[in-house]
Design a protein around this nucleic acid. Structure first.
Lengths: 339, 339
DNA sequence: CACCCTAGAGTGAACGTTCACATGGTGTCA
DNA sequence: TGACACCATGTGAACGTTCACTCTAGGGTG
């Protein structure tokens, strides 16, 4: 039991072996529930483990088994409801299967997030799930090729070799929103874009523009971009509504921005939904407490998280599909008072 | 370059050494910026690293250095604003100092969270920060004693040997709330307790009861407990207000429950704040979008997270204080429309 | 010119595990 | 009674690093 820098020492498998008067391999067998251990020996070993407060060192184990039972998860901002839910969902799925999750927030300044992903790999994870955010598909392809482990990308629908991608059907989501708005006699849809998550945003934007062009006589929606915070959404929506007084519906790229839009309408004396309808994305639980409650696109974050974990697990067990698999999820429109 | 179970292999320091035609120790020296490496050699090694896409294996390194540069963080529910902010804050502080954070959600079913903490240790973290939630002080003391690494407890003010605890001054928070309510002519304060986080809840409850007894003629506030969700807060507040019609102010133990209380008032046709005032804890960003906006106790989650990280770091560098240190933070009352 | 010093590089051991294989003892059956 | 199977356990090597040494060649000093 040598000293650690921090002070206190921890017993090793050899300490346990000495106390139980067996070899380290026998202790190892007890630890992994190997059948060929005599009951009496097993009991002795367990007592020694208990007595010493022994905890196996998973890093040493990982070194020889080449498997850490740990997956990495990375997203830009864990406080964002969708990312947080996905993280929680992966946690739950991981724990259920005896896996652990190392969570890290992507740092734009660290090579646009690539550095963060790289360091995740050095931690010895068996797989990585992440929201690609600032990265190009070619960068992700290179990362996956050299990572030596399965890679799952969440939130962007791209067929990248060696990468499983999980995303919602943005076309469907856009159609749901625009159909609903047009059905409620709205014609001039303004867009409140999120400048922080270009990955999700791009597809969402294209899908919305196409849906708008299909269903209204307006060729191109007015757009404003800002940070995904309530206050920024409020400012952005104010700019949008002042510059384009004919806008009668605002779509925020997440619920936080849409909530900002609600406040902006209030500030400007516009009635929601009579003068301006507001729609968000994410299905945040706080959508019920706004005034009026927020209509929003609900995406099954937990289900997607579960799928992400399952994808990593099956890649570990059966190998990564070299083709680039895409799992598409169907969104739903939760209609509340804001439309 | 042997095969991993998942398929692809990763180059090791020996592969790099071979390509650069040096020994592994020289590569190691380049990696750690050791001064005594000839410039030409250094360049050759760096080229080899680049060419092979080599990433050092931090587990192997941790095994020999007995330091993983990784801290563990655990909380019950990462989606809760206060926990999420603390997590984000620790992430940021950790990254700034070259550390990593392994995040895990505490599982009540796993020995009331102790099992989750134990497994965190097997991952080889250099320290653990956590919200103690369901654990007794004696359990935490035992855990700290046998963990072999610094332990920081967030959210409960307890002097436990070998443990640094970081919490807000609950007495002060309770005084702020009760003083403010009494100043606005409220006399019958009802409490909406959170049954999920008994650690925080107990101190908060005691502090509030004492403040109420000090400032009003009511000896004991009526209390209802439920889950920390908006819908549960709504139900609980409805029960509270129906059973105690004289209640003219409701204090929720977090913002989510307080938001539920706002909805309950709305359901019951009570005006906020004229008939019933509502106060929450946490300073959630969503407090601005409620109707009316929520008065709440703001705790400096980021500052506390920073302090938690710094505490772990200084324990690693200078040793854990055996006395049990308590860092107390001063809360502020953010007065908005709900009072 | 003998001496020592130092910069630059290499070697064996160790970290705490598990894997593959070896060993010895016991029981079974022809 | 011998051959063989099989059960329980032990041993050496390996995983990918770093640490504490050692070694070598060259240069400066007296």
């Amino acid at each position: 039991m040598k000293e650690r820098p921090s002070g206190i020492d921890r017993p090793t498998i050899i300490d346990v072996a000495e106390v139980a008067d067996v070899s380290r391999q026998t202790v190892s067998r007890v630890l992994s529930d190997h059948p060929r251990v005599a009951p009496a020996t097993r009991r002795r070993v367990k007592e020694a483990i208990e007595k010493l407060g022994y905890r196996p060192n998973r890093m040493a184990r990982a070194l020889v088994t080449r498997t850490s039972l740990t997956f990495g998860f990375a997203a830009v901002d864990m406080r964002n409801s969708h990312f947080g839910d996905t993280c929680s969902g992966m946690q739950a799925a991981a724990r259920e299967h005896g896996y652990y999750l190392v969570v890290t927030e992507l740092d734009f300044n660290d090579d646009r997030g690539m550095g963060t992903l790289e360091t995740l790999l050095t931690l010895g994870v068996d797989g990585v799930a992440f929201f690609p955010s600032f990265l190009e598909d070619t960068e992700i392809e290179l990362f996956a090729a050299t990572s030596g482990c399965p890679v799952v990308m969440i939130g962007r629908e791209s067929k990248i070799p060696n990468v499983v991608s999980i995303a919602i059907d943005e076309t469907r989501a856009a159609d749901l929103i625009v159909d609903h708005l047009v059905d409620t006699r709205k014609r001039h849809i303004g867009i409140l874009m999120n400048e922080m998550f270009p990955d999700i945003v791009h597809e969402r934007f294209v899908a919305l523009q196409r849906a708008v062009a299909n269903r209204t006589e307006v060729a191109r929606s007015p757009v404003v971009a800002d940070h995904p915070k309530i206050s920024h959404g409020r400012d952005a929506a104010t700019r949008l509504l002042q510059k384009h007084p004919d806008v009668d519906a605002v779509v925020g790229f997440n619920d936080t921005m849409a909530m900002g839009a609600l406040l902006a309408c209030h500030d400007l004396g516009l009635r929601v939904p009579e003068d301006v309808a507001v729609v968000g994305y994410d299905g945040s639980p706080f959508g019920v407490i706004t005034n009026p409650p927020l209509t929003t696109i609900v995406q099954d974050s937990i289900g997607m998280a579960d799928a992400a974990f399952k994808a990593l697990l099956s890649c570990v067990e059966e190998g990564t599909p070299s083709e680039g698999e895409v799992l598409l999820w169907q969104p739903e429109l939760l209609v509340r008072g804001s439309t």
